[in-house]
């Protein structure tokens, strides 16, 4: 599961819906893997305003990954400054180092095994081979 997904996922239990501490879910005993993927600059530009940056920083810290900058980059930060010598025929803007770093953390860094724990109710969702189990027993729905 991509860290991108963890930045949107909440606890599924009905009584947690209204509690702010049900997001983000906290990884525990997590085994990470890097799954290489093509950088999709337009997607990063699209998703950027929807990220919860502080919560992403919390999860990144909990996973023991290098700390993210305190403030979220802007859309302009994602595009490499165009070099004056480059040919004007190239159609798409090139991604900046910031975009590459964001791609690495959001899209390529995945939780392969472990648990995701709700900060409100303590429910643990197992992750196996990257697949999270969100099936709930009927009484918790």
């Amino acid at each position: 599961m991509k860290l991108l997904t963890l930045n949107f996922l909440t606890c599924a239990i009905k009584t947690c819906k209204s509690s702010p501490s049900s997001f983000p879910l906290h990884p525990r005993d997590a085994e990470l893997e890097i799954v290489e993927a093509d950088l999709n600059l337009k997607f990063l530009e699209n998703i950027l305003p929807r990220l919860m940056w502080d919560e992403l920083r919390v999860v990144v810290d909990e996973l023991g990954l290098p700390t993210l900058p305190p403030t979220i980059p802007t859309r302009a930060d994602l595009v490499a400054p165009s070099s004056p010598t480059s040919s004007s025929s190239s159609s798409d803007p090139a991604p900046s180092q910031t975009a590459r770093d964001l791609h690495r953390i959001l899209i390529e860094t995945c939780v392969r095994e472990g648990k995701l724990v709700c900060g409100n109710c303590g429910h643990e969702y197992a992750v196996k081979e990257g697949v999270a189990n969100f099936l709930l027993p009927a009484h918790l729905v």
């Binding site: 599961m1 991509k2 997904t5 949107f8 996922l9 909440t10 606890c11 599924a12 009905k14 997001f23 919860m52 990257g130 697949v131 999270a132 189990n133 969100f134 099936l135 709930l136 729905v141």
Partner: peptide, 14 residues
Amino acid sequence: DLFLADAGQGVPFR
């Protein structure tokens, strides 16, 4: 990303 989940139990995203 894949989830083992029942859509009839809701959609757990913010």
